[in-house]
Design a protein around this nucleic acid. Structure first.
Lengths: 91, 91
DNA sequence: TCAAATTACGGTCGACGTAAGGATC
DNA sequence: GATCCTTACGTCGACCGTAATTTGA
């Protein structure tokens, strides 16, 4: 499991489609599709239902999305800590 | 920032050296060294002091380690959710 | 038939391990 | 001089984007 996979997944949920998520992430639709497919394969569960107009969360996807969202603030916190420390001492 | 970087960092903290962390992670010492160097470069802050017998946390490292530890349970939770869902419906 | 997702494919960049080098005690 | 961290280096796999194909309304 990689952070990028979770970020792509979250973006797809929030955008409602791989296409729009790809734009938001400055990448291509095939990359989003492949990255999420890899995540689903690793977890052995389908996270998103592919519909004609985009994607929607499955039951399992909802839960994974919830924990993904809960995790993200810690990433931000790590970056914030580093940025603060950076001003006090040199690398 | 990648999950692997944080995992390698946490393992190094807990093991007290890159060498032992490498064993625990089933990889080599150079890879641990390089991975953590990349994390430090990205965050622009030194996380570990390199000593003769191993590594110890810097002030900034302590904080990053705290948030890293806080984050990890969510990853486990995601895996658990997936495993539970797997039993109820097929991929 | 249109829009979006998937698959195929080739090139390139990065990650890995081995080996050599450097620093600290 | 022993131990651990770092740097150098070559290889191989993975990721990326383009293009072609498939799927669903």
């Amino acid at each position: 499991m990689e952070l990028k996979q979770l970020q792509y997944f979250a973006a797809s949920v929030e955008c409602g489609s791989f296409k729009r998520a790809a734009e938001k992430l400055y990448t291509t639709q095939p990359n989003v599709s492949k990255t999420i497919k890899a995540l689903e394969n690793e977890l052995q569960v389908r996270l998103l239902d592919r519909r004609a107009h985009g994607v929607v969360l499955t039951r399992a996807g909802e839960e994974v999305y919830r924990y993904t969202c809960a995790m993200m603030p810690y990433m931000d916190k790590i970056r914030a800590v580093a940025e603060t420390a950076e001003k006090e001492a040199v690398l």
